[in-house]
Amino acid sequence: MKIIVLVKEVPDTYGDRKLNLETGLADREASETVIDEIGERALELALTYADANEGTEVAVLSLAPEGATATIRKGLAMGAGSATHISDEALRGADLGLTAETLAAAIRRVEFDLVITGNVSTDGSGGMIPAMLAELLDVPLATGLSSVQISDGAVSGSRPVESGVQQVSATLPAVISITEALPGPRFPNFKGIMAAKKKPVEVLTLADLGVTADNPDAARSIMLTVAEKPPHAAGVKIIDEGDAGEKLADFLIENRLA
C-alpha cells in the first residue's frame, strides 16, 4: 500500500497573519510558518495504518516556496518514509486550478493507493484541492471524513453533511480528506528527527512535471483588489460592582440586541 499525504506550510494562526497589500500574496516574513495542523492529522492517520500494516509506504507531498522545508522535515520526522517538494517561482500566487494540476502531475508519477489530505487549510480555506485531484486523477473521492477505516483495497468512513451523517466507501485508489475529529499528530521523537535527515526528499519544478503555469486553455482565478480592514475597536469596559448584569441587559435592549 502506498499512501500519499498532502501537507501545507501555512502562517501560524496563533500569530498575526499579513497579506502584502501590493501583491495580495501572503507576507511570509510577517508571521511564523508552521505545518497546517489538519495536514498533520492526515499524516497521523497514514502512519497509524502503516504501524499496523507492514509494507505500507507513506510519502508526504508539499507545494511550497524554495527553502520552506520545515514542514517536509517535520513530516519525515513524524515517520513518513519519503517526501516530494514541488517548488517553482512560476507557482508564486498559483490559483486552485494550477495548484491542483501541479499536485496531480506529481501524484501521477507514482503508483498510489490512497491520497489523504486535510478537509480545508487554515489560510486559503478553499477546501477544494481534494475534489480537484480526484477529478484529475480519475479516482473516487470521499471528503470531510470524521472517521476512517482503511483496508487492503478500500477506504470507508463517516461523512457529516448538512442534514445528517453519511457512511461512505470507495475502492482504491482514491482521494480522501479528513476533519479535525481525527486524532492529533504524534510528536516526532529524537530518533525520528535524526532518521529524517537521511530520508529522501525529491525536489521538483514545473518543468519536471510537464506543467505550464500560463496554459492559455485554462481559466485562472485572479485577485483584483486587496484591502486591510480596520480592526474592530474596543468600546466600553466596565468593572462589575454587583450590577454589571443589569447594565449589560440595558446595553443589549438599547441596541435592540435582546
Binding site: L96, A100, G126, G127, A131, A134, T143, G144, S221
Partner: peptide, 24 residues
C-alpha cells in the same frame, strides 16, 4: 454553497472544465 458537497462539486467541475474558482 461553500458547504462540503458544494466545495466538492465546484472543485470537480472546475478541474473538469478548466474553469476558475473563487472560493469562500
Amino acid at each position: 454553497s461553500h458547504s462540503l458537497n458544494g466545495r466538492d462539486l465546484a472543485g470537480r467541475y472546475a478541474a473538469r472544465s478548466r474553469a476558475a474558482i473563487s472560493a469562500d
